[in-house]
Design a protein around this nucleic acid. Structure first.
Lengths: 142, 142
DNA sequence: TTTACAAGCTTTAGCCACTAGAGGTTCAAG
DNA sequence: CTTGAACCTCTAGTGGCTAAAGCTTGTAAA
């Protein structure tokens, strides 16, 4: 008989987030008290911990849904779980490459800045003129 | 006299995104034809290119707004632009650290997977039991 | 000059994964 | 029995776009 607050504290999830996971079907609808408050079981805590841990590893909620489904059928081969994890690793590695390129470019930009008048500012200059870029960074974001 | 489509093509920005930038005040409202279609000048193209390039370097739109403001006052010191860029670099480096930790953990998870039955799957096991984690990854996301 | 159609227009809603706030109710300790 | 922390629902907002519906305009060829 765990309250939503207990789940929240034990997994480091905001209370609203727990309700959100229920809403999108990642967590089952728990039992309720006569007054309408949610009461969970240990299994729910485990499942939520699993979800949060996977999120910390950068898995998208859809991937987590797949992993949870797999985890509910322990007889099958784990090749699927493996391939989801590999997909995730690939994504992480792509982001790493991109961020490393960004880091390089930002460092260069900053290193060359005179700290003097704006008109001579390398930071703005580099942003103004893409052709000054050393690195090819064609995708946006993280 | 550039159409929105031309701006879009020359900067690799979707047409809707150009209109979005106008809506949030990053681009000025351009002139219109009698029929109501947008017509831009070269300066708008430059500004949009600046914005896109900064986005590619991972700057948030708010940071870009600041940079554009700075760039409109070329007499002042460029120390501000420099500090925005440094802030950005710091963010990128933090994300790098996090992603490197994730990469390590995912690799380990995958390496230890037997490829056999789900019940023995390391991928799921690691996700189930946080204590098996070697790396401290306490923040979520990219 | 007419016609075809690509490209433009506005408005609305959706994406992801939450997060925050308003305004009310319930539970448990003292 | 009272207090107040914790719970409830519902709505709306975040960032940075993106897509679709359903219309209008601009331009080039016939």
């Amino acid at each position: 008989m765990l309250t939503i607050g207990t789940l929240s504290r034990k997994t480091g999830t905001k209370v609203q987030t727990v309700r959100y996971y229920e809403q999108i079907g990642l967590l089952r609808e728990p039992g309720r008290t006569a007054g309408g408050q949610r009461r969970y079981e240990e299994a729910d805590l485990d499942r939520l911990a699993f979800i949060r841990h996977a999120r910390q590893l950068g898995f998208a909620l859809d991937a987590i849904r797949e992993l949870l489904d797999l985890s509910d059928h322990p007889q099958q081969s784990c090749a699927d779980a493996d391939s989801i994890a590999r997909r995730q690793l690939k994504q992480v590695e792509q982001r790493l490459l991109r961020l490393q390129a960004l880091q390089k470019e930002l460092k260069r930009m900053i290193a060359e800045c005179s700290g003097d008048r704006m008109a001579d500012c390398r930071v703005l200059e580099v942003l103004r003129d893409h052709s000054e870029c050393l690195t090819a960074h064609d995708d946006i974001g993280a």
